[in-house]
Amino acid sequence: MQVTLKILRFDPAKDKKPRWETYQVEAEPTDRVLDLLHKVKWYQDGSLAFRRSCGHGICGSDAMLINGKNRLACKTLVKDLGSVITVEPIRGLPVEKDLIVDMEPFFAAYRAVKPYLINDEPPPQRERLQSPEERARFDQGTKCILCASCTTSCPVFWVNGTYIGPAAIVQAHRFIFDSRDRGKRERFKALGSGSGVWRCRTAYNCTEACPREIPVTQLIEEVKRAILFDSF
């Protein structure tokens, strides 16, 4: 089938503002949007820039705004979109070139919640044991691939930009609810601040955008509750 691919492009050397470019691409209904982008880049216009790595939804590089929704280009099929497809960079982060955005603010928020195991207790003789139930408690957060689909679909993040964002909260959740971790107070400092979880207005955009089907909003609410019960 013939697909009309509209891409919002931006070349920092030439453009003042992003501009729409339209490409005609021959595609199979089972092609991914990533395949279309490759067809454009490899055979029509080599200057098109976008991030991608593994190509099957694990590395989290190719989140983009496809037909108005944040999705991974490698997990979105042409047959689910129709014959006119628009592709834009994810919103709320500065565009570097075409579909590539500056991810630094996103990762600054990620670092702020200390996304690693914190436990200063002397290590036991063998492993720190955990029951299947304790492991299941934070299972959903472990599915996160840091693609930024959630954070860049959040209206609070778009407007103000000082919000820590859903992805960082999901990462914090993964450790706060880990029975082996002792660092929740340190994380609460970043999460409880003016730019932390209390900015969340439960718009549910993040939950809808997540390509890994993490119930993001629910996890954010659980973190709010954890902070609440920790303080009172």
Partner: peptide
């Protein structure tokens, strides 16, 4: 030869 002669994110 390549189309993209730029310096920023020249993935080509």
């Amino acid at each position: 030869s390549i189309d993209d002669k730029g310096d920023a994110y020249n993935t080509e």
